[in-house]
């Protein structure tokens, strides 16, 4: 097997483990926060900015043009995504009148 083939194989391990971790971690997010979750993962996947930056900084004109558009698109997601997630999360307020341990209706008081 060629060297690049082996490198791709290691990348598959990284992908598989990350997908398992993601499945476990995100499976625990309550339905209450599913919209902020989607906007947060959107912002995080704006990490494709990393690939876009390299393309935009290349010496080849066409690559630079494509890369610059990609940088703009990805940074809309990163900047906009984190801002709007925070805007949403700030709206979720705890009721000071209720105990933190959400009691069942009719069993607590």
């Amino acid at each position: 097997m060629s060297n690049t083939g082996l490198v791709s194989f290691m990348a598959l391990y990284v992908f598989m483990l990350a997908a398992f971790v993601g499945y476990q971690v995100i499976g625990r997010v309550p339905a209450l926060l599913h919209t902020p979750l989607m906007s947060a993962t959107n912002a995080i996947s704006g990490i494709s900015l990393v690939g876009s930056l390299v393309a935009a900084g290349s010496s080849d004109t066409v690559t630079t043009i494509l890369g610059t558009v990609a940088v703009a698109a990805a940074s809309i997601n990163v900047v906009g995504g984190f801002l709007i997630t925070d805007r949403m999360l700030r709206m979720f307020k705890h009721d000071p009148g209720r105990p933190a341990k959400r009691p069942k209706l009719g069993h607590g008081g």
Binding site: F15, A18, A19, Y23, M38, S45, I47
Partner: peptide, 15 residues
């Protein structure tokens, strides 16, 4: 990139 994409993909899949 692989990790962040996998997290995003897993999240979309669960939802």
């Amino acid at each position: 990139l692989i990790i962040a994409g996998a997290l995003d993909g897993a999240s979309g899949f669960i939802l």
